[in-house]
Design a protein around this nucleic acid. Structure first.
Ligand code: SF4
Ligand code: SF4
Lengths: 135, 135
DNA sequence: GATATTGTGGACATATTAAGTCTGTAATTA
DNA sequence: TAATTACAGACTTAATATGTCCACAATATC
């Protein structure tokens, strides 16, 4: 019931790109150094963000990653889903009975969680930051 | 981000005890058979429920497990916490900064989830069941 | 066009956690 | 006392997350 480290890296990367250089490309080496994680591993995570359309990558010298246009509207849920996939918390039951009370109760609570994450956007966080210490 | 199978077993066991025999003792063999899980494994899970005070166990012939008095007010959250522990979803960060925006956002959403689970009680589920097919 | 730079892909290795087993012991009843 | 049942701890196995390695593709600079 914890988010993975990979998700945490992804969220930090997004936020870092947002507050430092939303328009310039940043290489994975720099991003990895900030988070004390190996560049090779972080690059796999970044590729997922690229595949899900929230980050743009450019190869070659002076290449790197930057956020898409409209990144302000990307939600925390978008990022989490891009890394963790979409499985529900009650995905541990074989017997998928649609009337199941247990599943209904858990999914209802889970939706409260997902809705709030879906309403928190990168732009909101990026605005609040800068006043506080960064990442 | 999924609940463990162990939690699922625990929820089923609680609900089963609630709807069948909230006052008689039921042995682990029967409980395990219902869920197609090994008795030894399920007994470990049951011991956690006993330790956290929501189930009473009795050794010896005709012994077994039953729910405590007032089981109707036990919440789904109580059961989940008894099995999974209390770690937060954002427990993947080393750098516990109390002003962290990422952690705040995740924890806020998580609280919505926990609150709803905390307001869903075994008594509610047990009442709804019986009309529908059981477990 | 050659070369350096940077991201991508896949196979692999390691670490962590979950799931499940085995066995002996303690408690209770008949 | 003998049978029954829960409890405890060590252990094994399975699943998943985390991380590494290396060859290759794409791009910029010269
Ligand atoms: S920004 Fe938040 S999650 Fe990231 S390192 Fe700081 S405290 Fe941890
Ligand atoms: S009661 Fe719900 S969770 Fe349990 S087996 Fe049925 S469908 Fe699955």
């Amino acid at each position: 019931m914890k988010l993975s480290k990979a998700t945490n890296y992804a969220l930090h990367t997004m936020l870092f790109l947002a507050v430092t250089s939303p328009h310039e490309h940043v290489g994975v080496a720099k991003l990895a150094e900030k988070q004390h994680v190996s560049p090779t591993y972080l690059s796999k995570i970044l590729t997922k963000l690229v595949k899900s359309g929230m980050v743009i990558s450019v190869s070659g010298a002076n290449g790197g990653y930057k956020l898409i246009q409209g990144w302000e509207k990307i939600s925390l849920l978008d990022v989490i889903k891009a890394i963790e996939g979409l499985s529900s918390m009650s995905d541990n039951c074989l017997n998928h009975n649609p009337n199941c009370l247990i599943q209904k109760a858990i999914e209802s609570a889970e939706n409260k969680f997902l809705n709030e994450l879906n309403q928190t956007h990168m732009g909101d966080l990026a605005n609040q930051i800068g006043e506080t210490s960064l990442i």
